[in-house]
Amino acid sequence: MIELRVNGVLHQVEAGPETPLLYVLRNDLRMNGAKFGCGMGQCGACTVIVQGKPVFSCVTPLSSIGAREVVTIEGLGTLAHPSPLQASFIAHQAAQCGYCISGMIMRAQALLAANPHPDEATIREHMEPNLCRCGTHMRILAAIRVVAAGEHA
């Protein structure tokens, strides 16, 4: 049994210490927001926040999490009450197929939590590791920009 704190809740997880965090989230905790994309830390679909930092959960072994707090997209908001960033993604219709979006939102959320008003260059540099094969980057950036400017979506 390994203890894992996700979205403020402490879980006892029955998984080997080598299991990637993504597998624990999806298979053991049934949180399917984070997606398996490449499995190699190249696409960002699996991005979650660990102690304030965006990490590729597909290449983050469970044993490395320790007491650090994990936040997934399930921890941001609900369908009825989306977080400001989620609301902005919806308003901008930033998703096409949607596979990358949870990772996009979590990476952006990590930035906005540390720096609520990043400039355009900072946003672009920060979002660079996450890929969208549909090509909705312009809408994704627009959605983030609105929240970074402190406006409501």
Partner: peptide
Amino acid sequence: AEGASLFAGGCAGC
């Protein structure tokens, strides 16, 4: 042993 775990979860995929 700890390193082997980390390798299996973080590095082995590549």
